[in-house]
């Protein structure tokens, strides 16, 4: 699946997007896989309460299932308007 990062999440990880092969059943499991990779991922995902997630461009929570999902995006709380 495609994993996208925005704002300071993108800056900490150093990538705007990447393709990830995963068997994770939920967003939370995917986050744990990513955190285990490298320090920069650990730094980005250290505090989930500071993050939001969208699945196929819809806001969801971290317990949402990943089955059938093509695009996951992680970002801080939004500051539009």
């Amino acid at each position: 699946m495609e994993v996208l990062y925005f704002a300071w999440v993108r800056e900490r990880i150093g990538l705007p997007r990447e393709t990830v092969e995963t068997g994770a059943a939920t967003v939370r499991e995917l986050v744990e896989e990513l955190r285990a990779r490298e320090d920069r991922y650990e730094a980005a995902f250290a505090d989930l309460s500071a993050l939001r997630v969208a699945l196929d461009q819809e806001l969801r929570d971290f317990d949402a299932p990943l089955e059938g999902v093509r695009e996951v995006a992680f970002f801080p709380p939004m500051t539009g308007g």
Binding site: A54, P76, G80
Partner: peptide, 23 residues
């Protein structure tokens, strides 16, 4: 709703550097 549900992120640029605006 646009403030906290539309996917925009603001960053303030000053002579001292750049800071993401916190929600």
């Amino acid at each position: 709703y646009l403030k906290s549900r539309a996917p925009f992120w603001k960053k303030e640029i000053t002579a001292e550097g750049a800071d993401w605006v916190a929600a």
